[in-house]
Amino acid sequence: MKAWVEKGGYLNHTGRRWLSRLHVDNIKRIVVIRQCAFGDMMATRPFLVELRRFFPGAHITLSTVSRYQYALPHDLVDAVHVLDTEQRSLKGRWAQLKALGEPDVLFDLADTARSRLLTLLTPARVKLGFPYRRSFNRLLFDIGILRSDFHYEAEVLLDFLKIMGHKPQYPLEFAMPRHRRETAHPRIVYFPFAAMAEKSLSPESWCGVIEQAAQRLPQFEHVLLEGHKDEEGSEFLDQVLVQHDNVSVQPRLSLDALGPYMAASSVLVSGDTGVRNLALATHTPTLGIFFMTVPFRYWPRYEDCHEAVFHRDGQVPGRMDIVDGLEALLNRLYPARGVTAGQA
């Protein structure tokens, strides 16, 4: 098999020889290290789908850490290996690090201190990774991929398979409930929370956005989606709820319920959150609000249904920036439900 790379990656002698002799039917055990929270785990799903397509006979183990148990893709792997970050016993830690045995292929999709140690101690036939510090290529990997902040994370992960000549499906397949534009409810969902408070607009700003959108887009239901944390409630929106009949609250949903709910909605308005990544995974239209995170890493461009609101100078987008962007997106995707039609 040819190594489909020129100057965009790292190959040592072992990696090049392995690629030249690769027969997918001979790969029996694969380990994928991915230690990440909800959103990035969603972005991992297309890689696992395509990994299964490329190596249909392989047993796939996903390795993660105990703090990241939410949204694990159990449906896409054969086993899950968990490093317990609370393990105090040296013997216990060592046993966890050696529990993966000797896989044929190891992918490190994490680039953390723990993932690097696990990669170093796991005697796989070939190891692939994308470390931010290239010095780790020679130390740890046989095949290294350049990692970009300017392309959607889920697509970047697929570069590991493209180097083997694999042709991923587009639009990407997440194996999640799928949005159908023609049957979507006239429902705009807002998720005004983030893991880090500074990555989200203030509650006052969100009130202004939702109220203005409810006035300009009366033909849509405007729904605030509550989160799972105690502080991710709807109390700050009480006054807007009283004043507008088309504004409501969706209480917290389980992960199993959230996928179908999002897929049946018209659009999600949100900052850089795990919920937005779930919307991307269901192909639900999104309007992303960015001012801290690099938007391009979380902005798929292979579909016409995603937009990002951000200023080149990094200023926080204002209420009108967001509502104007939302109106433009809805008019493009749902012309029959446009502002003109709603006001007639």
Rank of each mutant, 00 (worst) to 15 (best):
V275A: 04
E231C: 15
G271T: 10
D324V: 12
Q35D: 08
T284S: 03
Y261M: 06
L76H: 03
V267I: 14
F136I: 07
L253E: 04
A328T: 15
Y334G: 08
S63N: 04
R45W: 12
K2P: 15
N277D: 06
M41H: 04
P335Y: 04
D321T: 14
D313M: 07
E235S: 15
R17E: 06
R29T: 07
A43K: 05
L22M: 11
L280C: 09
F296Q: 08
R178P: 14
L253W: 10
D84N: 06
C305R: 03
V5Q: 10
L90H: 03
Y68G: 08
V223E: 01
L72M: 03
S66F: 06
L72W: 08
P46C: 05
P186I: 11
D313T: 06
D256P: 11
R93D: 06
T293Y: 15
T64I: 11
R125P: 11
S200K: 00
W18R: 05
T122M: 01
A194M: 06
L201W: 02
T273H: 00
N277S: 02
C207P: 09
Q315D: 14
G144P: 08
L224I: 14
K7C: 09
P168Q: 02
D245C: 07
A99H: 05
G233F: 07
N12E: 06
R29V: 08
D238Q: 14
V156F: 08
L48K: 02
D238H: 14
G15P: 12
V24L: 09
A95I: 11
F193A: 02
T112V: 13
K229I: 13
D111F: 07
I30Q: 01
A214C: 13
S148M: 10
G314M: 07
G165L: 05
V267C: 03
V242P: 08
E231F: 13
K162A: 12
R301M: 09
G274E: 03
E231K: 10
R88Q: 13
G288M: 10
V240I: 09
G208Q: 10
G8A: 01
L22I: 13
G227A: 07
A308D: 10
K167L: 06
E211L: 00
D256F: 13
A195C: 10
H311I: 12
Q219N: 12
R133W: 04
H151I: 15
L158E: 09
D238P: 12
R297E: 14
V309Q: 02
R125V: 11
E198M: 13
P171Q: 02
V31G: 00
Q96E: 00
T286M: 00
A257W: 12
L19T: 06
A197D: 02
H244F: 09
S254D: 15
L22V: 12
D75G: 01
H13P: 10
S200G: 13
G259A: 15
P260T: 02
Q212K: 09
I145L: 04
T112R: 14
R53V: 11
E232A: 04
E231M: 12
L72C: 09
L161M: 15
V31Q: 04
